[in-house]
């Protein structure tokens, strides 16, 4: 695994050198290339729909033999952190429900483990209501990391005031703005579990928060989403959210348990690229995105480079 990472960065370096060579050959001033030299790297790790899967699947499991397990996820996370201090770890919801750990310990073990793995933020999934709204409120209080959601109105419930519509994190020189959103609860979660929580339109709610994060001059804006990757009908999904908003750089998704081989890239409502990623469920995979930042005047100049330098990041 280590060698794989080194190999990747080496390949990337070779590609960049080749492009630089071509650019010089084509008469572009070498100075401008050096000015755009990559300055800083941010690593984003993410999980979704872990569903209380603390232990690995059994070795005789037909779909995920021996995969997953908190003790293995932790090693991966720590290895990556040790390579880059500027690493963030997120979860896109449905932390709870799926194994006896949740039935008997009501979310304590899941949150304790996420605290130990030093998650930076999480959003709320529909199954995070399964222990009832009091259990959700209690677990949010027990977490050492913030829960981010902007389209559930928790007024009058025990969760009120415990969830952030957005947060801003700083890693070195990079300011990261994070918002979050969740799926319609009516018809999905029994009423008695979400009580008076109101679902608000995610497109408007997220755009509002993204505008605030832009004003706060965030260098990267992330939405932790539990809307689901894509639907056959008109139901709002990560794809729809990406297409109908502007300002989001990355959507870390969940809910549909979608295993994406590569992140999907979608154009937003002003034609800019939005990256969407989701890594299945049960913690059998961890998603990793390495963002490279440079100081420049405009984003446009750099975006063309994204395409050239990193062909493999283009959605298929």
């Amino acid at each position: 695994m280590k060698t794989e990472l080194v190999m990747q960065s080496r390949r990337k370096f070779i590609k960049q050198s080749l492009i630089a060579g071509v650019a010089i050959g084509a008469g572009v001033k070498p100075n401008s290339l050096f000015a755009n030299e990559i300055k800083t790297q941010l690593t984003i790790l993410h999980t979704n729909d872990v569903h209380s899967h603390i232990e690995p699947f059994a070795d005789n499991d037909k779909k995920y033999p021996g995969l997953g397990g908190a003790e293995y996820r932790s090693t991966i996370i720590e290895n990556i952190r040790s390579k880059n201090e500027a690493t963030l770890l997120f979860d896109a919801g449905d932390i709870f429900q799926g194994t006896p750990y949740f039935n008997f310990f009501h979310g304590d073990i899941e949150i304790d483990l996420m605290n130990k793995m030093r998650y930076d933020a999480a959003t709320i999934g529909n199954h995070d209501f399964d222990g009832g709204i009091e259990t959700l409120a209690r677990q949010i209080t027990r977490a050492n990391f913030p829960f981010v959601n902007c389209n559930y109105d928790f007024s009058g419930t025990p969760v009120a005031g415990k969830v952030h519509p957005h947060i801003v994190l700083q890693k070195g020189k990079i300011k990261i703005g994070i918002t979050g959103c969740g799926v319609e609860l009516e018809g999905l979660v029994p009423d008695k579990l979400f009580t008076s929580t109101k679902y608000l339109d995610p497109i408007n709610s997220v755009q509002e928060q993204v505008n605030i994060l832009k004003e706060k001059k965030c260098n990267l804006i992330i939405c932790l989403s539990h809307l689901g990757y894509q639907y056959k009908n008109s139901k709002v999904s990560d794809i729809v959210l990406a297409q109908q908003t502007n300002g989001i750089d990355l959507i870390i998704g969940g809910h549909t348990h979608t295993f994406l081989d590569k992140p999907t890239i979608v154009k937003n409502n002003v034609g800019k690229e939005v990256v969407i990623n989701q890594v299945g469920w049960a913690g059998v995979q961890i998603g990793q995105l390495n963002y490279f930042f440079e100081k420049s005047l405009r984003k446009k100049l750099s975006n063309t480079q994204t395409v050239i330098v990193d062909k493999k990041s283009i959605g298929k």
């Binding site: 397990g69 293995y72 991966i76 020189k173 990267l220 990793q288 963002y291 420049s296």
Partner: peptide, 26 residues
Amino acid sequence: KTYYPVTHTDNLEKVTHQISPDKNIK
């Protein structure tokens, strides 16, 4: 002048037994 994300790479970390387990977590 401000920092813009200019490029990104992605990677999937498969969570398997081949990784040494974190003993504290276990």
